[in-house]
Design a protein around this nucleic acid. Structure first.
Length: 676
RNA sequence: GGGCGCGUAGCUCAAACGGAUAGAGCAUCGGAUUUCUAAUCCGACGGUUGCAGGUUCGAGUCCUGCCGCGCCUACCA
């Protein structure tokens, strides 16, 4: 509702100015929020209009105030020096709209959006860094869906790369296990933990004797032949670990629609199709000398087109031609001299498929069914898989994509975008968003707590990077377990009358709320220095704080014997919102009005999060709303309120805030327990 | 060397598009409940937004230079 009024206001202002000053080109009106509610609900700085209108900001503000006709929902405008128009909403009108949950119609842009997130190498357990990725990605999916967009969620599985090969080496060369023995192990609970340790041992084994790296090369090569015993073992392991990852993420209510695998990108010759087009358009060129001799290379994204070429200095943006002078260090090898495509090459092919530009498709089968009966599909290769399903959803061929991938890969991501551009797919490139975020590292204290010995240098750092290769990090399931244990202790002591099952369910909701909030409260570009003390906190700016506010709101209704949703419907039907007027006017009402105003901004903040690709705004908002509510709760006893009309008004306030807070938390993937 | 990012209170972080007195949480100290459960609330303390210039009516935000830190810069993925 707030967002709707903002648009209406911006238009009204511009119309007024255009009417008064025909023919003058004006910048779009900036609508801001005044620093304090007393000042108003919207603020329009008039400074930007001063120059084009050759007038003073104050005069323009006065002009807007006097000349703008009535705007529905707006009660009054005030001029504030040095140059603002402060706009006050018609509080009663607004409250009526909110209490009855009116949603102005919105235009939903056409086209499907594909969000790729998680994409963990299926060779070891997920760790806290992967949690950040999945929680950011899943929340972004929920944001888009809240805004009415159609979204496919994909989790890319690199099941044929070095990392999987390394664990295969661990099983076959270090542990010397047979296929049958490995299969038995995959049935163990938390097989991914087993791989976590083994992966670290393999890295150590390589370091001990460089000769051991031969095993990696052989294994990597063998995996590419789908009929080999090694490929079968790799598939066994990666599939089992993948299943574990899905289970881990399922604990956090994170679901996927489709799991494209690298094995299919290889077997279905996606790369060949892409390679042909890339050569044809001159995006790739064959290097005939230097260290990249014999490779097909591409200009690295972000390197200047005319910084190196001897005869091309200053010639502008002519396209790269085969044999063009791109210095060695500006070259990105896409196809190795042995003819195999590297990671970026396969990624280009995959992204052409995402946009429906490749002319090929995966085969599909069902892989994982969630408790809510939602199916997650996986890619498959027809000759090997005799029963790919004919009746599958249509994946790919989308109009916009978001790739949740950490900041370290931004260059690779930009190279894929440049390749699309080079192929002439500017439209696709423009709708390709690298949803970049920083890593989760450990505080030195946390690292020490985990039993790692630190150098003096490490101790002085503010954070230390985790390393899957070294087995250094906090595993996702371990963290979730600890959070649940910790929450369970609190619930046990607070609600001994509940059954253990009930208490565990509540503890789980609290744990997930704490974890998801923790991962969302930092902006993406901030490195999270992880510490158990912060992550296990349930007080202050945390998920449980916001959950608790909702529980309080619910308990008021419970005590009164009223169903909050039913109450809201009754407000819509029976109670004239005009009754609210006297409780919403005047200085004393500002504090409660602020609560209503905040509650009106859900959609506004959702749009802001999407526009900036930053879910942290939403977490901030949930906390602010909970904070305002807790203060309100403390200040205004509701059930004991003697004035019946005022009591109804206060209850309506609680109902609206509760509803919007539940919605906001739901977009973050956080549910609210019945009691806390 | 080049590319990207960061530097804000003791600590961890906010402040979309340049806007009114730079805000939270934690920590520290002091207070609040016979009430709809205190996982709560109120208050105090805490700032030359790394440094120096510039643009602007206005800069934490934009530009230039410098200092410090991180990541990327593999025929790995």
């Amino acid at each position: 509702m707030y967002r709707h009024l903002e648009h209406r206001l911006a238009e009204g202002i511009l119309q007024t100015l255009h009417r008064r000053h025909p023919g003058v080109t004006l910048p779009t009106a900036v609508i801001e929020q005044p620093p304090k509610v007393e000042l108003g609900d919207f603020a329009i700085p008039t400074f930007p209009f001063a120059k084009p209108l050759r007038s003073s900001p104050l005069k323009i503000a006065e002009e807007i105030r006097a000349e703008a006709g009535p705007i529905e929902g707006v009660a009054e405008m005030q001029v504030a020096p040095p140059g603002y128009v402060n706009v006050k909403l018609d509080r009663t009108w607004m409250a009526a709209a909110l209490a009855t949950d009116q949603k102005p119609p919105t235009e939903i842009p056409p086209g499907k959006i594909l969000v790729e997130h998680t994409s963990i190498n299926p060779n070891k357990a997920a760790h806290i860094g992967h949690l950040r990725n999945a929680i950011l990605g899943d929340t972004f999916v929920r944001l888009l869906r809240y805004a009415g967009r159609e979204v496919d969620v994909q989790n890319y599985i690199d099941n044929t790369g070095v990392q999987v090969a390394d664990v295969v080496v661990g099983f076959t060369h270090i542990e010397k296990k047979s296929g049958a023995e490995i299969e038995a192990l995959t049935r163990q609970p938390r097989f991914d933990y087993y791989c976590w340790d083994l992966y670290a041992r393999v890295s150590h084994w390589y370091e001990q004797d460089k000769q051991n790296l031969q095993a990696r090369l052989q294994t990597l090569h063998a995996i590419e032949d789908p009929n080999s015993e090694t490929a079968a073992i790799a598939d066994l392991i990666s599939t089992a670990v993948l299943r574990r990852h899905l289970e881990t993420m399922d604990r956090l209510d994170i679901e996927y629609d489709f799991l494209p695998r690298e094995s299919e990108i290889l077997h279905l010759q996606f790369w060949d199709a892409a390679f042909a087009k890339l050569k044809e358009r001159g995006v790739l060129f064959y290097e005939t000398e230097g260290k990249n001799k014999g490779c097909w290379v591409m200009r690295r994204a972000g390197t200047s087109k005319n910084s190196v070429g001897k005869d091309r200095v200053g010639t502008g943006d002519s396209p790269v031609q085969p044999g063009d002078n791109v210095s060695e260090e500006d070259q990105k090898v896409i196809v190795r001299s042995n003819g195999t495509a590297g990671y970026v090459g396969k990624d280009i092919a995959y992204h052409m498929w995402k946009f429906g530009l490749l002319g090929r498709d995966f085969a599909y089968r069902k892989f994982y069914r969630y408790p809510n009966q939602h199916d997650c599909w996986i890619s498959t290769t027809p000759p090997d898989d005799r029963n790919p399903e004919k009746d599958h959803p249509h994946f790919g061929d989308v109009s916009e994509i978001y790739n949740v991938i950490d900041a370290r890969q931004s260059e690779a991501q930009n190279t894929v975008i440049e390749a699309l551009r080079g192929l002439g797919h500017n439209e696709a490139a423009d709708h390709y968003t690298h949803f970049s975020y920083e890593m989760v590292a450990l505080t030195p204290r946390c690292a020490a707590e985990l039993g790692y010995t630190l150098s003096d240098e490490d101790r002085a750092r503010s954070y230390i990077e985790v390393s899957g290769r070294k087995g250094f990090g906090v595993k996702a399931d371990d963290l979730i377990d600890r959070l649940i244990d910790s929450a369970k202790k609190e619930v046990d002591s607070r609600h001994p009358q509940l059954t253990d099952e009930e208490r565990l369910k509540i503890a789980t909701q609290i744990a997930i709320g704490a974890l998801r909030y923790f991962m969302l409260k930092y902006t993406k570009q901030s490195v999270i220095a992880f510490d158990f003390k912060d992550a296990l906190s349930f007080e202050g700016e945390t998920g449980p704080y916001a959950q608790y506010a909702v529980v309080r709101a619910t308990s008021i209704f419970k005590k009164a014997g009223i169903d909050p949703d039913e109450f809201s419907r009754d407000v819509a039907r029976n109670i004239s919102p005009a009754n609210f007027a006297k409780f919403l006017t005047g200085e004393a009402a500002n504090e409660i009005w602020e609560l209503w105003l905040t509650a009106s901004k859900t959609r506004y903040v959702v749009d802001q999060c999407i526009a900036t690709a930053e879910p942290a705004h939403l977490a901030k908002r949930a906390f602010q709303m909970a904070q305002l509510f807790n203060a309100f709760y403390h200040r205004h006893p509701i059930l004991s309120e003697p004035d019946e009309k005022r009591k109804q008004f206060l209850l309506a306030t609680v109902a609206v805030v509760r509803r919007e807070l539940i919605r906001t938390l739901a977009v973050m993937g956080i549910t609210v327990p019945p009691v806390m």
